[in-house]
Design a protein around this nucleic acid. Structure first.
Lengths: 335, 335
DNA sequence: AAGTTTTACGTAAACGTTTACCTAAATAAA
DNA sequence: TTTATTTAGGTAAACGTTTACGTAAAACTT
């Protein structure tokens, strides 16, 4: 299979490879006439530069790696979309990695990305274990964290203020007249999406003089099934409540299913507010009131930051992006 | 930033680079003693092979490119998950591309993938324009199509039999006693997901002696919003019907919203069957009865096929994967 | 007209591997 | 013992670019 190289072009145009390279990069140092010859040769031979060879010499691959715990979740895929969008704009390709929240696998990916000489990495939605950090550090390329952060190390991140967002969600319910508010939380050992949201919930309760009841909270893993189960147990065992804050839209929607199955209505019998604002949240019925995280935008920002770091290598700022409540139809004013 | 190369390892171990390369690849031609020396040098220096240099010489990058019209859809991301899974298993990385159904952009991606020397490409869920085919052909690397196919050219594909699946969906509704069945279809100029599903629907009607009414079908673009609009117009203008077949789950869910808003119940007042079986379809309420397409499996299969093609280069079989109806709670037996 | 600067190129090394080919020593076969 | 074969290892070319450096001609200066 014959594929023309820059040498073939040079030969065909009767110039040196240096000259071809120069016209390819719009550098100076050739007459208009030779430029035409070269362009014509390129055209005729159907020449396409080889980015691998290019990468070898400039030590730049124009490629970034992105790690997700689960690529196929509505959550991840929206972030990916954002990342890909600006990466493409800026001339970078993105390699996706699905860690499956597995340490071994993550390390394997990190090694692959290293060998493939990616120019930067974005690490999303998982806590950055020490092991990962070491590997990343050894690679000495820029990294940005998305929807997670490292308290131990200075690594730029972009995320929402979880504690505050949870606070607002809860406060919103309170404003609407609810005082008996249950929560479906992530696990407390999750320092990113677990504990902080719970704290926001507690704080809001406390600030409004409402007693916090451990018995009104159930725990899940952010996914649909766990939300459903959590709701069932809440309905069965918790002191009565008129509103629910779920730490993820998926869990909120799982909870809604459980509620409907009991023959109750939303928001008439129970108000629910979610967290994330996945695309699907506006399509369920009734459309879910929730905390909007600008996922695509988070992806864009992360990509932007990473590429700035790659190209400049100074600058280590993080971003707290702003969330807001999107009012749809699962919360009702009470009293 | 110092990064050790194979030469450094060779020097440290007092052998030639050839020997280092040999132990790296488990070839023969060295004693156990030298092997140990080399391994130790690798360890001490923290050496990691450079896949770019490797790629340059073996003309293999162990990377594939995947094109999606929209990476963030529940549909695409599940396929991606499957693709990534087996690619990773077999030692390949995947570069994702979001074509946004834009010709210019697609061509740009194709060029990038070519320059980056990917070993193969999977092209999903869009019709393969001639322009794309030419570009692909020039690259002379394996390609597999997913959820699409080319009647004009021999390119392996993996997809479901759309016509048959639509037939079964409609027949299922008929079996359940429905005779007045509306459809929300994709656009008929879509030769993959549009026309064939409509044909299946018509055929099923005809085979059961039911008259096909153009007025009972509305058109959408497979997305939620269009499903909602289509349903509204059906409800307002179509002859009455007791069941609906939607050509995508998203449209089915959009339709459900419109139905609920009119105060009607599902499946009591109207039965609905969707198409795709997205993850979200089991979490809406009531859970959607639908045609299951094994999306992740389709991805796996495509990846498998592509890599086989890359490694062997013979073998051009396509696969029609089997769909099936998953009965949930949106269809009711009538009469 | 002579010197100076600029323009338009070409040459060749370098990037980090793999691998074909070569050689010398060790081992086996006769 | 001599010859043939295998083993252990080295040398250097090749992959397709980029770019520092060199040089002759052309274009300005004065």
């Amino acid at each position: 299979m014959y594929v023309p190289t820059i040498k073939d072009v040079a030969k065909a145009a009767n110039v040196s490879v240096a000259t071809v390279s120069r016209v390819l990069h719009n550098l100076s140092g050739y007459s208009d006439k030779t430029k035409q010859k070269v362009l014509q040769a390129i055209e005729e031979l159907g020449y396409h530069p080889n980015a691998i060879a290019r990468g070898l010499i400039n030590k730049r691959t124009q490629t970034i790696g992105v790690l997700f715990p689960n690529v196929s979740s509505g959550f991840s895929s929206e972030i990916l979309h954002g990342i890909e969008e600006v990466a493409h704009e800026k001339g970078f390709s993105v390699i996706v990695c699905n860690t499956a929240e597995d340490g071994k696998r993550t390390m394997k990916y990190l090694q692959v990305l290293r060998e493939k000489q990616v120019d930067g990495i974005v690490f999303t939605s998982e806590v950055l274990k020490d092991e990962y950090y070491q590997a990343l550090k050894e690679m000495s390329i820029p990294v940005v964290l998305v929807n997670t952060q490292s308290h131990k190390h200075m690594i730029p991140y972009v995320k929402v203020d979880d504690r505050q967002a949870a606070y607002q969600a809860t406060a919103y319910l309170i404003e609407k007249g609810h005082r008996e508010i249950a929560m479906i939380s992530g696990h407390l050992w999750d320092p990113i999406a677990g504990a902080p949201r719970m704290e926001g919930y507690r704080q809001a309760l406390e600030d409004h003089g409402i007693e916090f009841l451990e018995s009104r909270v159930a725990y899940g893993d952010f996914h649909w099934e766990s939300g459903r189960r959590a709701m069932e147990s809440l309905l069965a065992e918790a002191p009565s409540f008129t509103a629910l804050f779920a730490a993820s839209d998926e869990m909120a929607i799982g909870a809604m299913g459980a509620v409907f199955e009991k023959g109750m209505r939303i928001p008439d019998d129970l108000s629910i507010i979610g967290y994330d604002d996945l695309t699907l949240s506006k399509s369920v019925f009734p459309p879910l009131t929730t905390i909007h995280q600008p996922l695509a935008q988070i992806g864009c920002l992360a990509s932007d930051k990473l590429i700035a770091l790659i190209e400049d290598s100074q600058n280590v700022s993080s971003s707290i992006v702003s969330h807001h409540i999107v009012e749809r139809q699962t919360v009702r004013s009470k009293g």
